[in-house]
Each structure stands twice: as structure tokens, then as C-alpha cells.
């Protein structure tokens, strides 16, 4: 346990002293939500039969953006950076072990995610005026599962990316695809059904749909939960098999 605590300390210090990573985690999702709320016209107008506005949908998407920032860019880039500089090799020569090295990154990333998502919810509800979550427990569960499924996907990149640019590039590609399936450009009912169907079985889409259901409808869709659990396990298992120390 003390070994894990030591690695978490190292990863936490490195993250806190890396302004780029902090910007990706905090500024991007917060900026996107504030931009949609105050600068883009028409986001307060109802877009569906239940009277939900575009900004309601964007609040759910902002949680996804925060999760993807950490899981698909920062986390894989950190591990790839360790690999690129030989830090993984250096750690491999200590009793730290591969499991603890990865677990430490997960711990730091999850803490970042909890803080970023909590702050986003607070911003959405208390500042922008999005309705409070109908089912907070379901929201926490589906957000956590969504984050885990994205971390699992990020682990695949982290396992094999030879350097930081490759990790960032691969992560950015998934990030952009994630935004599409989450409905950034076609929020709520504006999204074509085919896109919605594909989105419902991949982490970004499933997470956004699940978060929206829990937040605004008070429901926890079982199918979404199953999809997210599967994605949280399968890529991580592959990542563990493919992991390269150098």
C-alpha cells in the first residue's frame, strides 16, 4: 500500500505541475459549457417535447468531455510519456510493479474526474440554471461507469503508444468521435437515429444517454449500464495483455 501511495504522490505532483493537463481537465469542459450557455444563441430554447433545452443536453455532454479529457488524453499521454522517457523502465527496476504503476494513474485520474464532474454539475445547476438531477444516485453510478469505460479505452492507448504525440493523437481521434456520438453537433432529438443507435453501444454515446436519463428523467437504463460495464472490462483486459514497458 505504501508503494501505491508513493506512486500516487509522484503522479499527483507531476499532474499539478503540468499546466497543459490541468487546462484539458478543467478549462475545456467548463469553457464548452459556459460557451454554450452564454454565447451560443438559442441554447435556452426547448428542443424536445419534454421542454428540455439544448443547454440541458450540453450539461450531460460536458460531463463526458471532462471524462474524455482525463481518460483519453491525459492518462494515456502520462503513461506514454513514462514509456518515451524510459521512466517505465526505471520503475520496472524497482519493486513498484506494473500493476501499481497503472493503478496509481487510475487513482489520480479518478480523483480528477470526481472533482471535475462534481464541479461541472455544480456549475450547471447553480450558475447556469440547469434543473437539479432527478436521480442523483443513478447519475453518480452511470457517470462513474462511463468514466471507467473511457479509462478502459484509454488504457488500450496507454498500453501500446510509443510516445506522447501518438498517445495524444490517438486520444484526440477517439475524443472527436466521442463528441460526434455524444451529440455535440446534433444534441438530443436532432441526432439522426442511426447515429443514436451506434452511440448507445459505445462508451461516449452510452454515457451521455445514461447521464441524461438519470439527470432529467430519473431513470437508470439497464442496457446502458450493461454496455458501460462491458466496455469498462474488455479493453482494460486487452490493455493488460498488450502492455509494453518500453
Amino acid at each position: 500500500m505504501r508503494e501505491l501511495a508513493a506512486l500516487v504522490r509522484m503522479d499527483r505532483i507531476q499532474l499539478m505541475r503540468n499546466p497543459t493537463a490541468l487546462v484539458m481537465i478543467l478549462v475545456v469542459p467548463f469553457g464548452l459549457l459556459l460557451l454554450q450557455a452564454y454565447l451560443i444563441p438559442g441554447t435556452r430554447t426547448p428542443v424536445d417535447a419534454d421542454g428540455r433545452t439544448a443547454i440541458d443536453h450540453f450539461a450531460a455532454i460536458a460531463l463526458l468531455v471532462a471524462a474524455m479529457s482525463v481518460a483519453l488524453t491525459n492518462y494515456p499521454a502520462s503513461i506514454a510519456g513514462y514509456r518515451e522517457t524510459g521512466m517505465l523502465r526505471r520503475l520496472d527496476a524497482t519493486p513498484a510493479g506494473a500493476g501499481r504503476v497503472l493503478l496509481s494513474q487510475w487513482v489520480v485520474s479518478v480523483v480528477c474526474l470526481v472533482l471535475a464532474m462534481g464541479a461541472l454539475c455544480a456549475l450547471a445547476v447553480w450558475v447556469i440554471g440547469v434543473p437539479a438531477p432527478e436521480n442523483p444516485g443513478a447519475l453518480v453510478l452511470v457517470a462513474a461507469l462511463g468514466a471507467m469505460s473511457l479509462m478502459s479505452l484509454g488504457s488500450l492507448i496507454a498500453a501500446v503508444a510509443a510516445n506522447v504525440p501518438i498517445a495524444y493523437g490517438s486520444g484526440a481521434l477517439l475524443f472527436m468521435a466521442g463528441l460526434l456520438f455524444a451529440g455535440v453537433w446534433t444534441p438530443g432529438p436532432l441526432m439522426p437515429q442511426a447515429l443514436r443507435d451506434v452511440g448507445s453501444v459505445i462508451p461516449p454515446g452510452a454515457m451521455t444517454q445514461g447521464v441524461f436519463s438519470a439527470w432529467f428523467e430519473g431513470e437508470l437504463p439497464l442496457m446502458t449500464v450493461v454496455v458501460l460495464i462491458v466496455w469498462a472490462i474488455v479493453p482494460a483486459a486487452f490493455a493488460a495483455r498488450l502492455f509494453r514497458w518500453r
Binding site: M10, I13, P95, A96
Partner: peptide
Amino acid sequence: EVLEVFARLYP
């Protein structure tokens, strides 16, 4: 900090 972190990796 580096030395303290690495020290804690050993028994």
C-alpha cells in the same frame, strides 16, 4: 521528493 517517492517503493 523523488528520493522520498523511490524510498517508499522499497521495504
